[in-house]
């Protein structure tokens, strides 16, 4: 069999998606569900932890070290490590993805709160604002750009890594990629990976819009 050209390949991919619509929609749903759950849980853990790390130096020493180390582990390796511990399926995949996404969110949050100019905080204190007022009216708005860019980076990351997580039973679009690879079928593989890429781009675009709305000022 001769190698098909790029145009035939793309047309074949579109046709494959069209003829397998139901399976595709289910996979997209699953992929997005996993993404949303992982993102929400990572934010729920990473943002408060990052905030606490910035405020409590003793805390930050270990939290940051652990999470920086976690960030270094390649996603596939991380996923494989979880198999003997948790087995395979949706839940182990979810946990592995959270562990993978958390460091970026935590470290960005930590950096966001730690990089605030001392003079600004000194003024806020000297003006007689309470700690709570300073947190919500000064620190958090100033940390937000970095927190947000952490969310944006890890969102794209989660979507991509979820594809790999199909290896440990996460489901989602990664299944098409695996089927494609094992059967040496470029069309099926492309159908899965192109859709993942499209979702990642769309999510990134949505974040960029939100970012522009949320953050009106520029730090000089």
């Amino acid at each position: 069999m001769s190698k098909p050209g790029l145009d035939t390949l793309l047309l074949g991919t579109l046709e494959y998606i069209d003829t397998h619509q139901a399976a595709f929609l289910a996979a997209i749903q699953r992929h997005l569900l996993l993404f949303v759950i992982v993102l929400l849980i990572s934010v729920a853990i990473g943002v408060p932890l990052g905030m606490a790390s910035a405020k409590r130096p003793i805390f930050s020493a270990w939290a940051l070290n652990i999470f920086s180390a976690l960030k270094m582990i390649p996603s596939l390796a991380l996923l494989m490590v979880f198999i003997p511990i948790l087995g395979v399926g949706f839940l182990p995949a979810m946990i592995a993805l959270i562990v993978h996404a958390l460091p970026t969110i935590l470290i960005n949050t930590y950096t966001g709160y730690s990089q605030i100019d001392e003079a600004i905080l000194e003024n806020a204190t000297a003006m007689g604002l309470t700690e709570r007022e300073i947190l919500w009216r000064v620190e958090t708005p100033l940390a937000l750009p970095l927190i947000f860019s952490g969310l944006r980076t890890s969102s794209v990351d989660i979507i991509a890594t979820t594809t790999v997580a199909a290896y440990i039973g996460a489901g989602g679009l990664g299944e098409f990629v695996i089927v494609g690879i094992t059967n040496m079928n470029s069309v099926i593989m492309l159908a899965g990976s192109l859709t993942v890429a499209a979702i990642a781009l769309i999510v990134d675009f949505i974040f960029s819009l939100l970012q522009r709305r949320l953050i009106r000022y520029q730090i000089a």
């Binding site: 000194e122 003024n123 000297a126 003006m127």
Partner: peptide, 22 residues
């Protein structure tokens, strides 16, 4: 009460320290 007391004091420093997001 420290916050109430500080509100009666204006404070201006060389680094200015305006809030950049406001």
């Amino acid at each position: 009460k420290v916050e109430a007391y500080r509100k009666k004091i204006g404070y201006v420093i060389q680094q200015i320290g305006l809030f950049p997001h406001m």
